[in-house]
Design a protein around this nucleic acid. Sequence first.
DNA 1: TCAAAATATAACATTGTATTATATTATTGA
DNA 2: TCAATAATATAATACAATGTTATATTTTGA
Lengths: 296, 296
Amino acid sequence: MLRLRQLEALSAVITTGSISGAAKTLGISQPAMSRLIADLSKNFEFNLFNKRDGQLTPSQEIQLLYPDIERVLELMGNIQNTSAEINDRKAGHLKIACLPGFATSHLPKVVATFLKNRPEVTMTIEPDRPERILEWMAGEQYDIGITDGFSGHPSVERTEIDIRTVCVFPQGHALGQLKEITPTDLINEKLIHSRRDSVFFQSVSQAFQRAQIEFKSSIEVRQFTAACELVSNGLGVSILSELDASKYVNTGLEFRPFRPKIPHRLALLRPTLKRPSMISLEFMQLFHESLRQYQQ
Amino acid sequence: MLRLRQLEALSAVITTGSISGAAKTLGISQPAMSRLIADLSKNFEFNLFNKRDGQLTPSQEIQLLYPDIERVLELMGNIQNTSAEINDRKAGHLKIACLPGFATSHLPKVVATFLKNRPEVTMTIEPDRPERILEWMAGEQYDIGITDGFSGHPSVERTEIDIRTVCVFPQGHALGQLKEITPTDLINEKLIHSRRDSVFFQSVSQAFQRAQIEFKSSIEVRQFTAACELVSNGLGVSILSELDASKYVNTGLEFRPFRPKIPHRLALLRPTLKRPSMISLEFMQLFHESLRQYQQ
DNA sequence: TCAAAATATAACATTGTATTATATTATTGA
DNA sequence: TCAATAATATAATACAATGTTATATTTTGA
């Protein structure tokens, strides 16, 4: 049976041109090297070297095999290195499924920070609708999912993060005078809001009911970016997470905390059964930390 | 230290999906396989498999390493196979330096026969002048040299082959009446011949001297192919080896043995110091045999 | 829940890989 | 040419890798 150690020995002899030199480069004794080469010679039944003025040069047969032999040794080195990098959390691949809003705003910054010290890590980021994300997580297609209004699934483990809710309005609007904004303050405002079937919309709508203020729906949008664009064009005001709102500051918008406190609940997901890789745990931690400043 | 056996074990577990299945495919006991995997797991400090409904599936980290691992195993197999083929004389590479005449006429047939049963053997055939061939052989650039008029060199070993000499003339020429041709028969013929400084020319010229017949030089050529072309165009007759002449039969030429017997001496060369590969010895033998029918 | 299957652990044999000590073979320079 | 020296091979031996069988433990599925 051909052994890896024999090939290492062969390679060392070819590069040094002698048994004793090869022994030195591999850091073993000369007799050990002698035997490795003798064993290999028995294995390959042809002669390995020609002796020419004191130098061992590879035989034609060995020259034929040499490229493959070197490749094997190189690949073994690669495997070792990569495994070390995986343990240093510097290599690996991460598949993240998230809401489209995240893919374009908050996530890229977190990813950039994460990859800065992990040059060998690669990532896949797939933005899609919440139902699709859930499906993918349950099917273990992705390592991490980021969504909102998640109500649980047996094969998906979640970490929930409550983000502060704010009211956004165009710069210079009268609401800017207030410290906090309640439904009562919005009595004459047109509201731009997310889908009516979303958990978050229902919480907001309840708050208005309790305050006995009519919720004046103006436009229903699917993404907070659209809402912010509309608000900055003076088409109304909106109630959304501070995380989303903060991306639109400096583009003609202002925001103030909304009262009563309604959390915008994000969910960080991972498949329950699939053992998470170290980098995926690290990423989840970093992502969680990145939201701390917006957390309720 | 990462061991090859561990990678074989890993690959078997990945393909079978279980430890015991992998043990079966490698033909070892289940505890042996258990230990190989445990050792590898200790080596790679991350987890190797996820268990999912009784099946072991490779972890993300292993998936990252798997292509290289498979490649290593494949290459080891290749090396084994190729070494076996070398021993069956079915693989290798042969470098042959020869006179241009050989490269275009006799050699291709021999090469074709040789390669028929040795599909993995590759060859380099380099045609050049005799001095260059000698130089290459002495410098161990080539395995085999084929030349003529070789007078010896300390680092080149030769096998000499004497080829019968014939006189070629155009079809229908009066010489066709004779069984053998002597210098006397050529008294009125114009002669097309090789270089005056060649060993062979000097032998022929001596034969004419002894017969006291003038050698009527018409054209001096460097290659027998040129001589044959000229002869078939009626520009004279020529004296050359039967080997060369036989290639030009059926193209308007005839030949008869030339007397006195003058051998056209070919030399099969190989470097003295360089240990010959098995295929080069086999090729030399086949080449020698292929000339038997023309041998004096 | 319980029997069967899969896997892990223990005790031990064999072989690969190294060691040191020593013999043999090449190389080299007076 | 021959002795000194370097290179390599062989022998005796230690220890780790790799296998075995026997047995315990865990998982799986009816």
